[in-house]
Amino acid sequence: MEALSHFTAGDGARIAYRFDGRKDAPVLVLSNSIATSLAMWDSVMPDLVEHFRVLRYDTRGHGASDAPAGAYSIDRLGRDVVELLDALELERVHFLGLSLGGMIGQWLGIRAPERIERLVLSNTSAYLGPAHYFDERIAQLAHIDDMRETAEGFIRNWFSQATIDARVPAVDAFRRMVLDTPPQGLAGAFAAVRDLDFRRTVALIDRPSLVIAGKDDTVTLPAHGEAIAAAIAGARYLSLPCVHLPNVESRQAFVDAVAAFLLERRVN
């Protein structure tokens, strides 16, 4: 396990990252959901480091990365990844992104395919409107002092009621991640999601792709995942019994599917 490090992106923002796993393994980059940090992957790390050198980073506006004021763009979030790979002298990597991370993954597949070996897009959308919903959320965040109500809204969208009622420790961990997210960082990321529309261009992705959806996801609907998989030539599609976080609610099936796809071995 290595310590948290930082690099400086082209616009001066400092982005936090860390490596886990042996240095001779293929590199897998993990990209987090909105309102979380790289800690969202903690539960699957023991499985992933058996096969990969895992590179996690905090999306700008989140975790230990800088949270510049103003609207972010999916182009800027994607270039953060490319610049991170450049700084670490990594030519090609596997990439797994969930939710906002999956939107960044789509950008990479469209705009920087030469940097991607295989692509996993989990619980994400090529377009997530309407714009006025995000404008309202951004306006609210400009005057917010207490993120508790915001955190509870995310928890309801991320987990089944049964998981919440069972007081699974992961729920508290994810609640804390939301509470620790700077409001202006969350607002900046909401702007990137608001302005994103890959419904036509996602078909340009030519990297081997696995699209994962949560059967009960009410944010990035299963239909959104199905549409992405249908648009990408040769893409595989997997629906798991969960809401928005299969890495928590369907952990074993999730890591088995990811490893099988990236390593090209079958899971019985």
Rank of each mutant, 00 (worst) to 15 (best):
F254T: 01
N247L: 12
V248M: 02
V255F: 07
R251G: 03
G225A: 04
V248W: 11
E226T: 13
E249Y: 09
Q252K: 12
A257Q: 00
R251M: 08
S239K: 11
L245P: 10
I232G: 03
V255M: 05
A233L: 14
L240K: 00
A229T: 12
R251S: 03
L238K: 12
A257T: 09
A257H: 00
G225R: 11
E249M: 02
L245R: 00
S250N: 02
V258M: 01
E226F: 08
H224N: 14
R251D: 03
G234D: 03
A231Y: 04
V258Y: 00
I228G: 07
S250K: 05
R251T: 03
V248N: 01
V248I: 15
S239E: 14
L245I: 11
A257C: 05
Y237Q: 11
V258N: 00
I228F: 02
N247P: 05
I228M: 10
A231F: 09
N247H: 06
R251A: 04
A235F: 05
D256G: 14
E226S: 11
L240T: 05
G225E: 05
D256A: 13
A259P: 10
C242R: 03
I232K: 01
V248G: 06
A231W: 13
H224C: 08
Y237W: 12
A227L: 08
Q252F: 10
G234C: 04
A233T: 13
N247S: 13
A227V: 08
A230F: 02
E249T: 13
A231C: 08
H244R: 14
A227I: 11
V243E: 05
C242L: 00
S239L: 14
A253M: 00
V248H: 01
G234I: 09
A257V: 06
D256Q: 10
A227R: 14
V258Q: 06
A223N: 08
L240E: 02
G234F: 11
S239P: 06
A227C: 10
S239G: 13
P246I: 01
Q252W: 07
P241H: 07
S239F: 00
D256P: 05
A230Y: 03
E249H: 07
L238P: 02
A227H: 11
A223I: 14
S250R: 00
F254M: 09
V248T: 10
A253Y: 04
L238V: 13
L240Y: 04
L240M: 11
A259Y: 08
P241I: 14
C242S: 15
A231E: 05
I228Q: 01
I228N: 15
H224P: 09
A235R: 13
P241T: 05
L240D: 06
Y237E: 01
A235Y: 09
I232T: 15
H244M: 00
D256T: 10
R251I: 03
P241S: 12
G225Q: 09
E226P: 12
A229P: 11
L245C: 15
A223H: 00
C242V: 07
L238Y: 07
P246R: 15
L238M: 07
E249N: 12
I232Y: 07
F254H: 13
F254L: 01
Y237S: 03
I228W: 14
I232F: 15
A230C: 03
A253T: 02
Q252R: 15
P241D: 03
A259H: 08
A257I: 06
V243L: 15
A233P: 14
F254R: 02
A231L: 07
A235Q: 06
A230L: 04
A233M: 12
I232W: 12
N247M: 13
E249I: 02
I228C: 07
P246A: 01
H244W: 13
